[in-house]
Simulated assay, not measured.
Amino acid sequence: MNRRVQALAAAFQFLSRFPVRAQLDYTPELFRQSTRFYSFVGAAIGLTVWCAAAAASYLLPPLPAAVLVLALWVALTGGLHLDGWMDTADGLLSYRSREKMLEIMKDSRVGAMGVIACVLLLLLKVSLIYSLLSGGWPPLLILLPPVWGRWFMVHAMASWPMARGKEGLAGKNFNGMEKRHSLAAVPGAAVLTAAAAVLFPLLGIGNFTLLQAGLSWLLLPVAAWAVGTWAARRMTAKLGGLTGDTYGALNEGIETVLLLVLVIIEYRL
């Protein structure tokens, strides 16, 4: 198995629960190389979610369909990023010192702030999916939030320091990420977005017009970068850098914001 295929398999094994059967030697170099394929993992998750949404929309009313689609979405990641969202909420919303916040985030137990943040996030996500399904056939554009959310994780690793240095899973395996790693992940995300643009006239138009779709392809990457940059800067200001938990939190937050953008475009433009 060549290095590129190993990196692709590593990305799927690390970020998802897709059954990728490969024996890999997980070195820090392999972890860093695998980041260029994070957007492909997002596309696989998004496409699976879209197929499930199409089937659920055909069989069920929008609300139970939306709940099942979100359950599948979480299951495909093993709750990895959702765990990061809860741990980050517990730490940042404790309003303690930097050291204490990092200690709280490292604790495997979930606190009140994490539970509240998780419930609110899932409620918002399911309501947004419901809105996108209420028109019947789900838009193919639903596969783009997972793509750009995972691209920003790579960008964040390369752009902001590690809060714990070389400690922890992120510090041991992703420390030393550079701008070239972030740039290497851009073509994959761009190609996947272009592929969605080509397939859009044939599949999953839903309530979206071609004008709305065009705005989505333009606004989603920009929104992912803008919202993610703002959040990463705020986290870095409080924690002195980012952690594995905050990368997951950034992905969850960006996915939700991009779903919100899609709903706004569908209902207001």
Results as ranks from 00 to 15, higher is better:
residue 139 P to L: 05
residue 81 H to P: 06
residue 88 T to C: 12
residue 100 K to E: 14
residue 53 A to M: 12
residue 130 Y to T: 06
residue 115 V to H: 04
residue 105 M to Q: 01
residue 124 L to F: 03
residue 118 C to R: 00
residue 48 T to L: 04
residue 26 Y to M: 15
residue 124 L to C: 14
residue 44 A to T: 15
residue 103 E to Q: 04
residue 118 C to H: 09
residue 15 L to I: 09
residue 114 G to K: 12
residue 12 F to W: 09
residue 77 T to K: 02
residue 40 F to P: 04
residue 86 M to H: 00
residue 138 P to S: 06
residue 130 Y to D: 10
residue 54 A to E: 10
residue 94 S to K: 02
residue 111 G to W: 04
residue 10 A to E: 07
residue 70 L to S: 02
residue 31 F to D: 10
residue 33 Q to T: 01
residue 42 G to E: 07
residue 113 M to V: 03
residue 136 G to L: 11
residue 33 Q to S: 12
residue 43 A to P: 08
residue 57 S to H: 03
residue 76 L to E: 11
residue 121 L to R: 10
residue 88 T to Q: 00
residue 121 L to V: 06
residue 16 S to E: 06
residue 97 S to D: 08
residue 76 L to A: 09
residue 128 L to V: 00
residue 102 L to Q: 07
residue 26 Y to E: 01
residue 65 A to I: 09
residue 102 L to V: 11
residue 119 V to E: 00
residue 99 E to W: 01
residue 58 Y to L: 07
residue 71 A to V: 14
residue 31 F to V: 14
residue 26 Y to K: 03
residue 68 L to I: 14
residue 25 D to W: 11
residue 104 I to M: 05
residue 93 L to T: 11
residue 132 L to K: 02
residue 48 T to I: 09
residue 48 T to K: 04
residue 99 E to V: 11
residue 16 S to Y: 10
residue 55 A to P: 05
